[in-house]
């Protein structure tokens, strides 16, 4: 009685040693190359890469395209409609004629309600700081009345 291992060894050691014939090699390789070329041709005809197709097929490309669209949109908005610091300043200076327009009644009222007369004084100082140094000859009254020097 042969043990299992011996049977396994018996089978293993007697692996058939066959070789293919030249005709078989030629036939198989020729047909394989033909099948390969046919697949490549079919793929290149069916899947000609177009930009929308690439974007549709590739997940990464979808994300990239979406990001690009968002960036372009935001840029367009900022350039044409969005706020710009320079624009705000220019517009502000164009519309405001005197500090009195900055020191509106409403702001003065809020300042008074918060800090009384000192609050109003602080508000005035802030306004002066914002508008820069003014000639000493201008009185506060003139300043608040909107007279231009």
């Amino acid at each position: 009685m042969r043990p299992k291992e011996n049977i396994e060894k018996f089978v293993k050691d007697r692996k058939p040693n066959v070789t293919t014939s030249r005709q078989m090699d030629k036939r198989t390789l020729n047909d394989s190359f033909a099948a390969m070329e046919q697949t490549i041709r079919a793929k290149s005809a069916d899947h000609k890469p177009s930009t929308p197709r690439i974007i549709t097929l590739s997940r990464m490309m979808k994300l990239t395209a979406a990001a690009a669209v968002i960036i372009v949109g935001i840029s367009f908005y900022i350039v044409h409609k969005g706020p710009s610091e320079q624009g705000i300043t220019t517009k502000f200076l164009e519309t405001v004629e005197s500090p009195s327009e900055i020191m509106t009644m409403k702001s003065l009222k809020i300042a008074y309600s918060r800090g009384g007369i000192e609050g109003i004084e602080n508000q005035c100082e802030k306004a002066l700081k914002i508008l820069g140094p003014q000639p000493a000859s201008i009185s506060l009254g003139d300043l608040f009345n909107g007279s231009k020097s």
Binding site: T20, S21, M24, R27, T28, L29, D31, S32, F33, A35, M36, Q38, T39, I40, K43
Partner: peptide, 17 residues
């Protein structure tokens, strides 16, 4: 057997890409 090996390789070649 030769036919089988032939068919397997032709099929394999068709899966290129």
């Amino acid at each position: 057997a030769e036919d089988v090996v032939h068919d397997v390789f032709v099929s394999f070649a068709g899966a290129v890409g």
